[in-house]
Amino acid sequence: MGAALVAPAGAALALVALGPLLATAWLSLRHRVPVLGEDHFVGLSNYRALAHDARFLGALANTAYFTAVAVGLELLLALPLALALHHAGRGRGALRAAVLVPWILPTVVAAKLWALLLQPDLGLLARLWPDGAGAVLTRPRLALHAAIFVDVWKTTPFVALLLLAGLQAIPEDLARAARVDGASALRVFRSITLPLLRPALLLALLFRSLDAFRVFDVVFVLTEGGPGHTTEPLSLYAYRTLLRAGSFGLGAAISLVTFLGVVAIGLAWLSALGERSPGEAPP
């Protein structure tokens, strides 16, 4: 009976998720360039080509760096923000709404906004610091950080909101009891708030790292992957290989590697989330 009830959902998933995934995996084993009329089976040679492709390895490194730094910064900034929102007295509702504004903007709009501000000749930042922050997009080793900055600016409020929900689920009594026992505010935070916030933290990490690993829009609008592919993430490389260069087999291989990266990250966080936090009573 249970299986029968789940069947429609399972069928729908198979149709819209598993089917395309298998089709992509099959495509990644072929050499297909429609413009040249090429289409034949090549086994794993697309993957072998990627292993020696400097641009692919660069894109992989860019994506990993972007994910680690952006998500790390977002958590570091969101935690104090969430605590402040949690303890804010009057105007809490208005404050929360205001904090969410960057997150409400569509990413493309936010990225375009920053692209104009960071435009190295006429942008506002270029007029204030012509050779400093204003020139960041022209520097191959710095441009990726501009994309990270925009991502952090945009998504920190979202992480803060997730953490705020976690904070509100912690019973007030625990902190009060600890204070009666003479614990300092720092001690309460370290021994009570942080351990009980763990599920919310891991959930935020899960959401954000999956999202950041698939980053496309911020980079596409800010730099189109330039200068010299130094800001190109995997999804942009896959897009260009598929649709600009028209090489469907290789593009499918890049997409599949991106997908596997996302799955690996997801599994890692989910298994961490499944572990009980230390000191939590067994059910």
Partner: peptide, 8 residues
């Protein structure tokens, strides 16, 4: 990509 790498 290569032209951009050179001019930058």
């Amino acid at each position: 990509g290569e032209l951009s790498a050179a001019v930058s």
